[in-house]
Design a protein around this nucleic acid. Structure first.
Lengths: 161, 161
DNA sequence: GTTGAAAGAGCGCGCGT
DNA sequence: ACGCGCGCTCTTTCAAC
């Protein structure tokens, strides 16, 4: 991946579109090259799909909860991971170092549903304890991972030369 | 938003594409109706853009850190929020109730960069203390918020009738 | 609100350079 | 890496229900 790829990905993130035409206007890269590059990025596994940016508040999933999960997983964490991911509403799950074993983020329709969620976690055998933190306001939701980086930083970090 | 809209959004999430043709195959909804619906969802603010699903590991942002930020924000949290979001690498930020004031998730190229990140937070005036948790493995990264829900649950939660 | 047909625009892809 | 051109998909409109 070189600077051009990075500029392309950043442009997609900034513009919020994958349209070759629009990307060409932004990056000055010829349309057919954009095509060529995007295909390579696809094959490299960097780009996986095309999706939409959803406004979760507008959708009706306005409640966000961050849950720390402490668990007793004997040996492998695989099975427990599966169970955690199986709980409806879980949008993110991280297996972590340190005091807590997992950090989970969930999106729910309303506060009432939080009870259901916590109960679902507590009902999992391996789970010892959960610690929930309510989110008052979601400042950034992670649907555009490249958003926070400047183009220069990205080029410096990710470009091969 | 009715059941049909929900089925459409779920299909987009499951298939990982916004292609009207593919969505038609999946949902049985005629192509021109899919167009009509998607436009309405756009105007309602539910759909905001079209993006790509990025594999952050493949991209070179393989390190994930969850940071709890304790801060002394006098009155409004707006300004502090801006400063937190200004730190490069921050993909998610939540203003929360409870012991911690903010929960932040960041994606970084390598562990060395974590130091830069923490320092950037500590350099913000209002920030009193930070507590970082390293992520060993990212089990789900939140780029498809509807993923965890079954179609039935979504219809029950979000459809108007 | 839903649908099909039809026309126009934009895209996907291969070839040649 | 880039331009060109063909065929295809998607987009938009419109008339009908």
């Amino acid at each position: 991946m070189d600077e051009r790829d990075v500029r392309l990905l950043k442009a997609i993130s900034d513009l919020g579109t994958g349209s070759p035409e629009r990307l060409h206007e932004e990056t000055e890269i010829p349309v057919s090259t954009i095509h060529y590059r995007l295909n390579n990025l696809r094959e490299a596994g960097v780009i996986e799909n095309e999706l939409y940016d959803l406004d979760l508040d507008a959708l009706g999933l306005g409640v966000t909860v961050v849950i720390e999960v402490l668990a007793d997983y004997s040996g492998s964490h695989e099975q427990l991971s599966e169970r955690l991911l199986g709980v409806e509403g879980v949008t993110e799950a991280y297996f972590t170092m340190g005091e807590t074993d997992f950090v989970v983020v969930a999106r729910l329709p309303d506060s009432d549903d939080v009870e259901r969620l916590i109960r679902a976690f507590e009902d999992i055998e391996e789970v010892d304890r959960t610690d929930s933190t309510f989110v008052i306001k979601s400042l950034r939701d992670g649907q555009r991972p490249l958003e926070s980086y400047s183009l220069d930083t990205l080029v410096g970090m990710l470009a091969d030369e």
